[in-house]
């Protein structure tokens, strides 16, 4: 369904992605893992059209997405940092994004799950970091799209909100959606994802199910498996 073909990208002298090939065939939750600066965000930003790859192509629904913008009508996106205009309220921001999307969308279940009702009339500048992230998540999930791209969805969330997020992700997956996300929280990834992609220095070092990763590295947890991969790489 989504196919990254030989994607390369460098920022100045820094080569961030090196001929990355990745095929996402079936719906499910795909987690892109890797240390800081390994190219996770750059990879998903290339798909979103926010970063222009130097070489390669990205195909979705049989068409190249590069240099286009209409395809984003069917993709939801969660940016890494939740920072919004300070002088408008949460409710007004929701209306604005709905207005841009021009698609049926419903924020009410997420307002209640994240307990955002008391904040709907508050200005975004007065919200805490965690609440902003909840608003960010709500904006990403409220429109019904077949593909959801999430950049660090867990950042700033308290344990209760983490549970809510897991619940939402599971129910979105059951609807047959493809969810592509980056994360640093290994427990979260282990519990929720169907497949993991491990990126290191701009190259994919592993792509497969969580169990396959554990089997390959002979480890119990995903955290240990990743550690093994890093050790192997530097051996």
């Amino acid at each position: 369904m989504i196919s990254f073909q030989n994607i390369s990208k460098s920022f100045g002298k820094l080569q961030v992605l090196q001929r990355v090939n990745l095929n996402i065939e079936t719906p499910g939750i795909y987690a892109i893992l890797g240390p800081n600066g390994s190219g996770k965000t750059t990879l998903i930003k290339s798909f979103m059209g926010m970063v222009h790859p130097d070489a390669g192509d990205i195909i979705w629904q049989g068409k190249s997405v590069l240099k286009h913008w209409q395809y984003r009508e069917n993709i939801s996106y969660l940016p890494q940092i939740a920072n919004f205009p300070k002088n408008v309220s949460v409710g007004e921001l929701i209306q604005f994004i709905k207005n841009l999307r021009q698609k049926p969308s419903d924020e009410t279940p997420f307002v209640s799950q994240f307990q955002l009702a008391p904040f709907l009339h508050k200005k975004l500048g007065n919200l805490s970091g965690g609440t902003k992230q909840k608003v960010n998540l709500l904006l990403a999930f409220m429109t019904d799209n077949p593909v959801v791209v999430l950049d660090e969805p867990t950042s700033g969330l308290d344990p209760a909100a983490m549970q809510v997020l897991k619940h939402i992700l599971k129910s979105e997956k059951e609807k047959g959606k493809t969810i592509l996300m980056t994360s640093h929280v290994m427990d979260f990834v282990e519990e929720i994802s169907d497949e993991v992609v491990y990126l290191l220095e701009g190259k994919i070092h592993f792509c497969g199910t969580v169990d396959a990763l554990k089997n390959q590295t002979q480890t119990q947890t995903i955290e240990m498996a990743i550690a093994q991969l890093i050790i192997k790489e530097h051996a």
């Binding site: 996106y77 890494q80 939740a82 791209v149």
Partner: peptide, 17 residues
């Protein structure tokens, strides 16, 4: 500069740059 992150949210929407 203040709307730098908000621009990223907008770039993820179906909008021309």
């Amino acid at each position: 500069y203040n709307s730098r992150e908000f621009i990223e949210l907008l770039l993820g929407q179906p909008l021309k740059r």
